[in-house]
Simulated scan of single mutants.
Amino acid sequence: MDRLHELLPGTWTDDPTLADLAGSVSSALGFGTDRPLPVPDSHTVVVLMVDGLGDVLLQEHSVFAPAMASHRAMAMRVGFPSTTATSLTSLATGLPCAEHGILGYSFAPRDLDPAVEHTLNALRWTLDTADGPPAESVFAPTDVQPMPTAFDELTHAGAGVITLMPELFRGSGLTRAAYGTPADYRDASSPGAVRDQVVDLLAVGDRGPRLIYGYVPNLDAAGHRWGPGTPEWLERLRRIDDVVAAIIAALPPGATLVVTGDHGMITAGRRIDIDTSPVLTEGVRAVAGEARARHVYAEPGRCDEVFARWSSELDGQAHVATRDQVLAEQWFGATAAAHVAERIGDVVAVPGLDTLLTRSLREPMETMMPGHHGGWTVAEILVPFIVATG
């Protein structure tokens, strides 16, 4: 399949998604019966989330990742938008973003701030921009995302849950919104640290039921900085595959490793700059999302004219829809909770193929990045489901 082929909302199926992983892992550990993904019964399940590991990229560069490629079971969809804050919350809650409410890289929580005085950067948990002021006092994580997480529910049910993530993310807004309050959070700030701690934990044998969750951000960072498929990106893919191979070798009987990603990535093509286009800024009070998926919040009473201008200006270059159309076509999930529906832009724009809707003035860092995601091409929205057993 063409790596830039679009998976439009009407083509989405009922096949398992990243949101099905939490329930499948819980069932494999003996809690529940719902198991859409083939995770075998286990006393220990290790879930390794590799940020930026798209299925198309893995297949295109499988020679650099033989361990992951050889244990790839299937591809699955992450949901829309294909971005970290949304996907991690879907993974940890078992819900699409239409229910958990983290609607992208950034969005306006209009249910909490009807005047749209601020947007929320959900990745950094800052106001308006990635380098904006902290947002916790305005948008508390438990207000923005109040649904329970599988991590907390497993802990309450008596399972051991160990979270291996960089110390930088401990207690952050996104960590609290996506994962809840991990009781056993351990610093693992490099792929090697994740490997060493997982191998040590597996060496003690059956201490189940137990979930060991490791998060590796390095591949995504390389894709944003240098671009997917570049030598720098490939070197990080190779290192991560070495980590996966070491964990597979350490799996005892009854333990399972699951590896997946939160999105794929494409290389930037044409850039359309919103900030320098009067046609795209007139009547608009806020623009959120990211270059591959934009929320547009219109000034009161100007939704129709903003939609008309965006549709005309971006004709043939982006899918532009009203909020009502987005809800009817279930872009963010089958049933949007009432408070979540309020957060969707009055207009939502998804550029086609490799086109970007950038913001040179408000998002200079993001505008210059060569690697992007958030849209619904197969290269962005499909991730691998990799599974190995002891």
Results as ranks from 00 to 15, higher is better:
Phe64Pro: 04
Pro40Arg: 15
Ala177Trp: 08
Met49Trp: 13
Phe307Ile: 06
Thr335Asn: 13
Gly352Glu: 12
Pro114Trp: 07
Arg238Thr: 15
Arg362Thr: 09
Phe151Asp: 00
His100Gln: 10
Gly54Phe: 07
Gly205Cys: 12
Asp346Thr: 04
Pro114Asp: 09
Gly301Leu: 04
Arg72Pro: 01
Asp41Ser: 12
Ala298Cys: 07
Arg270Val: 15
Leu219His: 11
Leu58Val: 12
Leu95Tyr: 05
Ser189Ala: 08
Pro9Leu: 03
Leu154Arg: 07
Val161Thr: 14
His100Ser: 08
Leu103Cys: 10
Ala92Asp: 02
Pro217Asp: 07
Leu53Gln: 12
Thr276Pro: 06
Ser90Gly: 05
Thr276Lys: 08
Ser277Gln: 09
His319Asn: 05
Leu21Ile: 12
Leu361Trp: 02
Met76His: 11
His339Arg: 15
Thr93Ile: 01
Glu363Gln: 12
Glu329Lys: 01
Trp233Glu: 10
Trp331Glu: 04
Ala388Thr: 07
Ala73Phe: 08
Arg210Trp: 01
Ser360Gly: 04
Leu154Val: 00
Leu327Tyr: 02
Thr33Ala: 00
Gly333Asp: 04
Asp346Pro: 03
Gly104Thr: 07
Ala286Cys: 02
Cys303Trp: 07
Ser70Val: 00
Glu153Ile: 00
Pro66Ile: 12
Val326Tyr: 01
Ile274Glu: 09
Pro9Cys: 07
Asp55Val: 05
Ile272Ser: 08
Thr83Glu: 11
His263Lys: 13
Thr322Gln: 05
Gly316Gln: 00
Gln145Pro: 00
Thr281Ala: 02
Ala388Gly: 08
Gly264Phe: 05
Gly180Trp: 02
Gly301Asn: 05
Pro133Ala: 10
Pro182Thr: 03
Val383Pro: 01
Ala286Gln: 04
Trp226Ser: 15
Val259Met: 10
Leu154Met: 14
Arg3His: 10
Ile212Phe: 06
Ala268Thr: 14
Leu237Pro: 10
Leu201Tyr: 13
Leu48Ala: 13
Ile266Ala: 12
Leu88Arg: 13
Ala328Cys: 01
Arg362Met: 11
Met1His: 14
Ala222Lys: 15
Ser312Cys: 00
Val204Glu: 15
Ala75Glu: 11
Leu4Ala: 09
Pro141Arg: 05
Val296Tyr: 09
Pro300Gly: 08
Gly52Thr: 13
Val198Gln: 11
Asp242Val: 12
Val39Leu: 09
Ala135Asn: 03
Ala98Cys: 12
Trp310Gln: 04
Thr322Leu: 04
Pro36Asp: 00
Thr358Lys: 06
Ile381Thr: 13
Val350Arg: 10
Pro9Trp: 06
Leu123Lys: 09
Glu6His: 15
Tyr179Glu: 02
Ala286Arg: 13
Ala193Gly: 05
Val326Met: 04
Trp376Gly: 02
Met49Asp: 09
Phe64Met: 14
Pro253Asn: 15
Tyr185Ser: 10
Arg309Met: 01
Ser62Pro: 01
Val348His: 06
Ala178Ile: 09
Ser106Phe: 01
Arg186Cys: 09
Ala268Met: 13
Gly94His: 10
Ala130Asn: 07
Pro166Trp: 05
Arg323Thr: 01
Gly374Gln: 12
Asp354Gln: 14
Ala203Thr: 11
Pro217Tyr: 13
Leu211Asn: 08
Val350Met: 14
Gly229Arg: 05
His295Glu: 05
Ala328Met: 04
Ala188Trp: 14
Pro370Trp: 07
Arg292Ile: 01
Leu356Met: 15
Ile248Gln: 14
Leu120Cys: 03
Ala178Gln: 11
Leu21Glu: 03
Leu120Gly: 00
Gln197Val: 03
